[in-house]
Design a protein around this nucleic acid. Structure first.
Lengths: 135, 135
DNA sequence: TCTAAATATAATAATGATTACTATTATTAT
DNA sequence: ATAATAATAGTAATCATTATTATATTTAGA
């Protein structure tokens, strides 16, 4: 199978992913990496993001949004999506692996895992809303 | 605002959705409804599916698949996706609403809810795999 | 029942995210 | 250095979904 060759573009994409907690879309990565490689192609961004995911150095997160998002954090954790600003943020939550067992109850197959995201209003949008109400 | 007018197409789409537990994509609905309305347009299927969702008579489910899926069951329940056959099935699981509280721990905003789907190997693919191993 | 206003349809075009293709360039092992 | 291989930029293609539009249906009211 083809082994990876070094590329500065991939390195910069990876550094950007690791430097942010924004869970950017490919387009957002493209916009940022273009500040270093003005001629980088969107296709290159997609290809490298997918390569990083395949290598286990990044994670693809699907929040029901129109675009995929990418995360440099690869340890198991959960995400929150704000219904107002649509931002995706990390949650610090204790294990909820037990829901796999609950789901397996009366189910004939094997449950390997689950994907969960939480939604609601983030701290910032919550306080913005409170201010608006008081005006 | 515009009020809905009756249409046989919408009725048939709804009947089909209610008759199946397959969680079909728009394309699958299209293929099935075409047996009754051979000239129905895919756009009509999409528009009516989205209307039904807006009316609360159907639910859109996003399982990280390339296509949206639709469900005639509108009560709160959970879904399972088989990693082998990709089929989506319903799970009978007791409430796991408490995970919202767990997620809210140390989080500044408000958590309204969560979306979860489980994945693994369905009963059928599991037994198929066992048979193959014994050959 | 007839009519007029409003919505729905079929057919088709447009959109937007993602992937595929290709000639050229960069990396790497020898 | 060289040859083999993978990566890139630029562009075209794909595919799910939505928008457009001329015509057909539905529906409320005379």
């Amino acid at each position: 199978m083809a082994s990876l060759k070094y590329s500065r573009q991939r390195e910069v994409i990876r550094e950007y992913l690791n430097s942010t907690t924004d869970h950017p879309t490919a387009d957002m990565v493209y916009a940022n990496v273009r500040e270093i490689f003005p001629n980088i192609s969107l296709g290159t961004v997609y290809r490298n993001l997918n390569l990083l995911v395949r290598e286990g150095k990044a994670v693809k997160i699907d929040c029901g949004d129109v675009s995929e998002r990418f995360d440099g954090r690869t340890d198991n954790h959960y995400h929150f999506i704000c219904v107002d600003c649509n931002r995706v943020s990390d949650l610090c939550i204790e294990s909820i692996e037990h829901i796999n067992t609950l789901a397996a109850n009366g189910f004939g197959g094997d449950i390997h895992g689950h994907k969960t995201y939480f939604y609601g209003r983030c701290a910032e949008c919550k306080s913005n809303r409170l201010q608006e109400e008081n005006e």
